[in-house]
């Protein structure tokens, strides 16, 4: 075969390596990008199956403990219900509320409830004011009634400690299983320093989280 039949070289060594590198990069990416899975989720709204409502203390001792289930907090243009309690404490005293809030499970299965101290969706801090203020004079405890819990002096029945605030620092030590169709009361104990300034206020924001099982 003579030189006339031979093809002149289009690619040099460098351009050939570059071309093959492009092939080695582009083709697998194209083969992978070519396939993307698109999923669909249908959302159906219904009433909350894990519900919170005022306990007997809110009704009987209005003014000392109130419960409001109509307050909302806005997150991304959506108004979420933020149940709000107002707890009155007395300087120098330990105050106990044995039936402050009732948590009910109508989810069709047992749920495990934990409390989480966290800022609300609008970004307001979990402990407000975050430093000092009234929280320097208050120790707060939230309990949920549970047969496996411990006896708390001054409270009837047995309880699991769910959330504690000491000197403005929150901890969430416990969890409680609420069987399907049952409810549990939340108790509150609040110790207030005798030097606490009358009329000072503090806010605690927390999440009552429910998980299956």
């Amino acid at each position: 075969m003579g030189p006339q039949a031979q093809r002149s070289g289009t690619f040099t060594k460098t351009s050939a390596i570059a071309a093959i590198l492009v092939i080695l990069l582009a083709v697998p990416v194209a083969a992978e990008v070519a396939i993307q899975n698109f999923m669909a989720a249908d959302v159906l709204t219904s009433d909350a199956c894990f519900s919170k409502s005022a306990g007997a203390d809110a009704a009987a001792a209005s003014g000392f403990f109130t419960f409001d289930s109509t307050t909302t907090v806005t997150d991304g243009g959506v108004d979420l219900i933020q149940e709000t309690s107002t707890i009155r404490a007395f300087a120098g005293d330990r105050l106990l509320y044995s039936d402050a809030i009732v948590f009910a499970n109508n989810c069709g299965a047992d749920i495990t409830v934990t409390f989480i101290s966290a800022p609300d969706p609008a970004g307001n801090p979990a402990i407000d004011p975050p430093v000092g203020g009234v929280w320097a004079d208050i120790n707060l405890r939230f309990y949920l009634a549970d047969p496996t819990g411990l006896t708390i002096p001054g409270l009837p029945g047995s309880w699991v400690e769910m959330l504690a605030v000491d000197a403005g620092v929150a901890t969430t030590p416990g969890s409680v299983v609420i069987p399907n169709g049952q409810s549990r009361s939340m108790a509150v104990t609040i110790d207030t320093d005798g030097a606490a300034v009358s009329g000072s206020t503090g806010t605690l924001r927390w999440i009552a989280a429910a998980n299956n099982g």
Binding site: P3, Q4, Q6, R7, S8, G9, T10, F11, T12, K13, S15, A16, A19, I20, I23, L24, V27, A30, A31
Partner: peptide, 27 residues
């Protein structure tokens, strides 16, 4: 000789074309 395979007898055209065909086939 401009008609000879480039670079000391190595035909890079054949290399690239063969690679492109192989990649296109599997794609």
């Amino acid at each position: 000789d401009t008609t000879a395979p480039s670079h000391q007898g190595v035909n890079y055209d054949e290399l690239v074309i063969s690679a492109a065909k192989a990649a296109f086939l599997v794609f």
